[in-house]
Amino acid sequence: MAKPRVKVPKTAKAGEIIKIKTLIAHKMETGNRKNKKTGKLIPRKIIQDFQAKFNGKEVFRANLHPGISANPYLAFHAKVDKSGEFEFTWTEDTGKKWSAKKSITVG
């Protein structure tokens, strides 16, 4: 169901602060909604953790709660001093993970 999309600039100058945009298709089931036919609560199932690393070092992390909309979008910044690779990881509360990688050339 979930498939991450990430936008990272392909190139940057050394020391530049770049903007990163991420989106993952996910229902973000709050656990507050009821099944209209059975009246039972639909169990909570959300992306609860997001992490962005650059060359293995964390640059941004977020703990998401049910108040975040479906298909969670996150945009943030990173300062890049040298070329390298970004790694993004989304974790569902079930433990299921998704990840994406993007390279950037600095020079």
Partner: peptide, 29 residues
Amino acid sequence: FSTGNPRPHTISMYFTPGSGKASATSRMR
């Protein structure tokens, strides 16, 4: 925090000096 939602805590975001800028965008209910 969304002060009027049944569960006010919406998101916590953690930054490092490597973030460059303390600014982030998302979408909330």
